[in-house]
Design a protein around this nucleic acid. Structure first.
Lengths: 341, 341
DNA sequence: ATGAAAGCGCTAACAC
DNA sequence: GTGTTAGCGCTTTCAT
């Protein structure tokens, strides 16, 4: 009973012909819209299956008001920070039957402009802009009424809708955790002070300490996001603060260096010094000696929330301002272990 | 002289009206096709700019035979392996004016099927399938004549077009490098034997040694892709092969563990034992003590080549079989350093 | 309940 | 050179 194979894709017309109805009826039947007798509907659906018919989404988009696509632009080459954001976004978008276009602007304004134009040409329903840091960025220019949501990297224009990590809570969580373990001489080794995230985490940490009537032990040490800096800074800190019993590091890489320096100095972790880190990057925190307690920045959630905000904006209720998604502390042996490493 | 602002996007008709010509003429003018007087063309282009006209790509795709979009499906949640592949692909595709749809199947056949259907519905011109390992995977089912290229993870069907890492050359490069440094007692600590990549790299290493009239020192040690295994395996190896002077590790994570074990055993790297690794994952190799010599698997290139093959297939000259993209050794202090760490 | 016809935005064939 | 027409695949009135 099989039809002759079509070399091209089947269209509504092919289905209509096979089912002995008109194209319009096929449309109604397959979209469960309008008034159709169930027998005709069944016949049409059978014909569609037979021909492996799949409606051309491009065509329906031309007609309709929406394309059910969005663009995701990153400046981060989808490296470790924007990847989870993007995945979270894709997850949430897929639930809304949206597909995501991938654009890697590499932090190049020319490329970014190009991608925006491409996306607008493809009539995306919205755009998510993501990046590498918490530092605000200039908003993208879209003359059209295409909704934009910034994820991870907020827009400098506070009227725009931005979804970011709650960096301050990261510092507070780390501080409260160390305090809860009875640590009282807590130091801080972190990244460049030019990073918003660095300053906010520092504030969070200080707030937690202040709430306990304490101050940071030693000055916060700012340097590069590297293991080498983690080692060096920790050595410096230990020299001036030999009785340090707690340490909050601004990244897992820095924390790895700190662990090395602590071991080299003959200190035990966590017995002598408890170490808490930031990023919870499994590859770094799970294999270290000891495994690292770390604040997970919830980047996947940032992506998910951003996508949800974008869908809302597309549906006509745009958000505004900066939304901060909570972090979560993941406890490992560097703060609660008993074993010797 | 400015027109009243349109609330909707400008169409060819709007441009035509403003320029005082017909829609067909606008099309010709903007596409630099057909015969148009340069003055009319200029007038039309000015009108287009004035109205911020951007042709609706969906509409042109409905008409034309191509959509200038491709789908990228990964099973790897775009983690560390597929991300560079994807970026390389996106780079090469962008040059061909193609946009990429992002699909994260999470290694779930249901999700994968869903994404394939979505992509076909959107009339992508081709599909790139990527994954996490070198192990072959079942081909995806696309009834239509939509070209598919497998990147990193080859199709089990050898008639399909697959672009993968040349894992054997990775092992050979590592072996030759260590031999070139005068090392003669070379061990191998690597991942699970179930990985194609593991077996191929092992073969490459053995080939290099055999060419020099040597054999592997001790048995290759297979375990998990973790620092813990790297430490443990290296301890085991050193116990049976105390005079080891070279070590090839199957991943950077394993190599990090190996470095720790070597240091713990009182050995200097590279003075006593030179260590070569695999993956060249900057975050792991640059901060270690000493920084690690590692084979870069050229994942970005795999993605670029895959995209190029896909573009060729779309243009009517499909490739077939498995293409292996060369790796590259990146030398650091773990094999050529003089400094004490 | 179904069909005919018009239209989405664009392009291409053919007139003039 | 430029305008007119038809059509891509689909949806949506509006007749019947």
């Amino acid at each position: 009973m099989s039809q002759e194979r079509l070399t091209r894709r089947a269209t509504v017309r092919d289905v209509a012909a096979l089912a002995g109805v008109s194209p319009g009826t096929v449309s109604k039947a397959l979209n469960n819209t309008g008034q159709i007798s169930s027998t005709t509907r069944a016949r049409i659906k059978a014909a569609a299956t037979e021909l492996d018919f799949r409606p051309n989404e491009l065509a329906r988009s031309v007609f309709g008001r929406r394309s059910f696509t969005v663009g995701v632009i990153t400046t981060d080459s989808f490296e470790r920070f924007s990847v989870p954001v993007m995945l979270g976004a894709e997850d949430a978008l897929g639930a809304g039957r949206m597909s995501a276009f991938l654009c890697d602007s590499r932090d190049d304004p020319i490329r970014e402009r190009h991608y925006i134009d491409v996306l607008l040409g493809r009539r995306v329903d919205g755009i998510i802009v993501t990046g590498r840091t918490s530092n605000p960025r200039p908003p993208i220019q879209v003359r059209d009424a295409v909704p934009v949501v910034y994820a991870l990297t907020p827009s400098a224009d506070s009227r725009d809708c931005s979804v970011v990590v709650d960096d301050e809570s990261a510092g507070r969580l780390a501080g409260e955790h160390l305090l809860g373990l009875g640590r009282r001489r807590i130091g801080h080794v972190t990244g460049p002070v030019s990073f918003d995230a660095v300053r906010r985490r520092r504030t969070g940490l200080r707030t937690a300490l202040a709430d306990a009537g304490l101050a940071l032990t030693g000055e916060p040490l700012h340097g590069s996001w590297t293991e080498a800096w983690g080692r060096q800074a920790t050595q410096i800190l230990l020299r001036s603060q030999p009785k340090l019993d707690g340490l909050y590091c601004g990244s897992d890489l820095i924390a790895r260096g700190a662990l090395d320096a602590l071991r080299d100095s003959g200190r035990r972790v966590p017995a002598d010094v408890a170490v808490t880190s930031t990023d919870n990057w499994s590859i770094l925190v799970e294999g270290s000696r000891p495994p690292l307690t770390s604040v997970d920045m919830g980047l996947y959630d940032v992506g998910r929330v951003a996508a949800r905000r974008l869908l809302e904006a597309i549906d006509g209720t745009p958000g505004s301002g900066v939304e901060r998604v909570p972090c979560q502390l993941v406890v490992r042996a560097s703060t609660e272990g008993a074993d010797p490493w």
